[in-house]
């Protein structure tokens, strides 16, 4: 990997340049919570000033720029009994600034399903190919457990990755496009001093991790504790509201709906992201539901993340961002649930 540094002033110029030519997405705040903390989300930015480089964590992950919550897979022109299918993949070059290591790692996990296994997904592919990611390091929040998930650092899957080392950013470069762009803004070779500062910052970041989740035997635990009461305990609180999956950077499952216009001349096949916590996730015709209870559905959320995905791709489907834990009104977080599982095991 190549490394360079860029002054913050030049970085500003670079973002302004990118803004002129492309759509740029970045963290912005809109509301505040009761504690006075800003609530961030990834949105289109119109000027450098709107970009909040000191943001903490976006409430929802930026996955929707790769897997939109809703998308038309195909459209149809209908006429009497015949029809014509039309498929266009959205090609929309854009830049996303400020994605965290965990979010980029989440994309790498999605790549496993969407690109590197059977039936690669063209809609995802088109978006992934046309997006330049500029990542950004930060000090972990109290509840981040990406370290335990081995997703606190990232080596590929982005164009540039920035670490704030004072008056400049230390930049890891991972694509040709990104390299060309960076070099137009006086990026300089890494000096010994830069390197020292980078090391210090990285150490500092490392020392800030507070939350640990023990996942060593989690896949086995998922089977051993399959009938455990702890699922009922948490499931009883669960609102089956799907918030966890919507904000999660790695949840990807979906439903399909088809509809026509009022004159039955046009139809669409629409995909919309779903959540395995929702009541009818596994319901089939005539009212049979393979997962009828909230606690069973909750268990399967964890089963997919920490057992199923591990079996298929040798890694969990979780990057430890704790967005689900934050979004869950019922206070259900991976840390709490997994700690509980481990405790019952020890008893």
């Amino acid at each position: 990997m190549l490394f360079k540094t860029i002054t913050k002033e030049n970085f500003k110029k670079m973002v302004e340049g990118l803004l002129e030519e492309n759509e740029v997405i970045g963290p912005r705040s809109r509301d505040q919570d009761l504690g006075g903390n800003k609530i961030y989300r990834f949105l289109k930015i119109n000027s450098f000033e709107e970009l909040e480089m000191d943001y903490t964590r976006s409430y929802s992950s930026p996955k929707n720029y790769f897997l939109p919550f809703e998308e038309d897979l195909a459209t149809y022109r209908l006429n009497d009994k015949d029809w014509e299918q039309e498929i266009r993949y959205t090609i929309h070059p854009r830049v996303i600034i400020g994605m965290r290591a965990c979010d980029i790692n989440a994309l790498l996990k999605l790549d496993q399903v969407m690109l590197k296994s059977v039936y690669p997904n063209p809609y995802y592919f088109a978006r992934r190919r046309n997006t330049l990611i500029i990542g950004l390091d930060h000090e972990p929040l109290e509840d981040c457990f990406c370290r335990s998930m081995n997703t606190d650092t990232v080596f590929h899957g982005f164009g540039l990755f920035l670490t704030d080392i004072g008056d400049r950013y230390f930049v890891a470069i991972n694509s040709d496009t990104a390299y060309i762009i960076l070099n137009q803004f006086d990026a300089r070779e890494v000096t010994e001093e830069d390197q020292e500062r980078y090391k210090t910052v990285k150490k500092q970041i490392e020392s800030k991790f507070k939350t640990q989740v023990d996942i060593t035997i989690l896949p086995e635990l998922m089977d051993l504790e399959f009938e455990s009461e702890i699922w009922k305990k948490w499931g009883h609180k669960c609102l089956s509201c799907g918030s966890c999956a919507m904000v999660c950077p790695t949840c990807y499952c979906y439903g399909i709906e088809e509809d026509t216009n009022l004159t039955f001349t046009k139809a669409t096949k629409r995909r919309f992201l779903y959540s395995c916590n929702l009541l009818d996730f596994a319901a089939v015709a005539r009212g049979h539901n393979f997962r009828p209870d909230a606690h069973i559905r909750l268990k399967y959320r964890y089963y997919h993340k920490f057992r199923g995905f591990v079996e298929a791709f040798s890694q969990s489907l979780c990057v430890g961002c704790n967005r689900c834990g934050k979004a869950c009104l019922a206070g259900i977080s991976p840390k709490a649930v997994i700690d509980d599982l481990i405790k019952t095991e020890k008893k």
Binding site: V113, N121, Y254, G255, I256, F281, H304
Partner: peptide, 23 residues
């Protein structure tokens, strides 16, 4: 038989335990 929306191991609706019924 399970609910299916893709047939290609993507929608997750057909998962039984950790196995995709469609694949």
């Amino acid at each position: 038989e399970r609910r299916m929306h893709c047939g290609m191991g993507k929608c997750c609706r057909c998962i039984v335990g950790s196995t995709f019924t469609c694949l």
